[in-house]
């Protein structure tokens, strides 16, 4: 296909995009609304995944060992833990290592160094085993079994949070997928309908084109371009709206006490921009092409 005929199709596509103002705006509004809904869940999903990746390093159970335990008792505890079904690795963390870790956490805030200075003599942090699991689903089961063992003073874990996040992530994934399907269906329908109106408005032109020997591709080109333009415009409008909405919500959330108390950070829209742009453009262009093609196969017998 020669360049000037592509140029012709694009300019014709733009012309009819602006001619059918009412229907075009209606379809853009509907597409924006559905893309916005989908976008909300897509963004939540991305953030849940982000939170999970932040917690992944902490996935495991910390088993605090009673201070009075002897070396052989500590060794026996390890063997017992390892024997539990679902346990993957068991790593020993000594009292001094625990202190060092805590020190490294609070280093950075000015006079905190000497805050823990005296503790070397009389270290209050217990020795522990860090236990990772082969399967997070066995979390509570494994915890019960460890609790029942001798010389265990306490357990601490983020696994509950991680499990809950994983369930949330799965739910959001399903919602996003369902919304995506609904979005695609509605948008294809509305674009097909808009293009049908354009085809109807230009039926005279189309019949003349057929008589002077235009190929089907040439006749369809401008309509497909029109569908794609509707898709891209909807994508860009939604991107701007959702960007502002997201930043507004993010600012509110970050200043809330709940978010400040947990050490999970969320994406800024800037970080997600490229991803959302690509997802929206693929959707817009795909739906535009599909909608107009379907419409023409149905209404434009060429």
């Amino acid at each position: 296909m020669r360049f000037n005929s592509i140029g012709y199709m694009i300019s014709e596509g733009f012309k009819s995009f602006f001619k059918q103002k009412k229907m075009t705006s209606a379809s853009i509004i509907i597409m924006c609304a559905t893309m916005f809904m989908f976008g909300i869940f897509y963004l939540i999903g991305e953030n849940v995944n982000f939170a999970m990746s932040q917690l992944e390093g902490e996935q495991g159970i910390r088993v605090m060992i009673k201070d009075g335990a002897t070396d052989s008792e500590i060794e026996k505890l390890k063997v017992d833990i390892q024997a539990i079904d679902g346990v993957s690795t068991v790593t020993f963390v000594s009292k001094s290592e625990a202190l060092a870790t805590v020190k490294s956490w609070i280093s950075g805030s000015s006079d905190s160094e000497d805050l823990l200075d005296g503790y070397e003599e009389d270290n209050p942090f217990p020795a522990s085993y860090f236990v990772t699991l082969t399967d997070l689903n066995k979390n509570s089961e494994v915890q019960e079994k460890i609790k029942a063992l001798d010389n265990v003073s306490d357990l601490s874990t983020n696994n509950d949070v991680i499990t809950k996040l994983a369930t949330l992530a799965r739910t959001i994934q399903i919602i996003t997928l369902v919304l995506l399907l609904i979005l695609v269906a509605i948008s294809i329908f509305i674009i097909a309908y808009t293009i049908k109106l354009t085809v109807y408005a230009r039926r005279r032109e189309i019949s003349i084109m057929k008589y002077v020997g235009a190929t089907n591709g040439f006749i369809r080109g401008p309509f497909i371009v029109e569908g794609i333009i509707i898709g891209i415009v909807s994508a860009l409008i939604t991107l701007i709206i959702i960007g502002f909405a997201y930043n507004a919500v993010l600012t509110k959330m970050m200043s809330s006490a709940v978010m400040q108390s947990i050490s999970i950070s969320l994406y800024t829209f800037k970080a997600l921009f490229a991803r959302v742009l690509i997802v929206y453009l693929i959707l817009g262009i795909g739906i535009g092409t599909l909608g107009s093609t379907i419409s023409m196969n149905k209404y434009l017998k060429v």
Binding site: N4, E205, M209, V212, G213, F218
Partner: peptide
Amino acid sequence: FRLLPDRNVYENVAFAMHVVKATP
């Protein structure tokens, strides 16, 4: 006649050439 009412005489004729991908 079957002319396009929104295009002038020149454009109506040129249209048939666009359609067969003639060069400008």
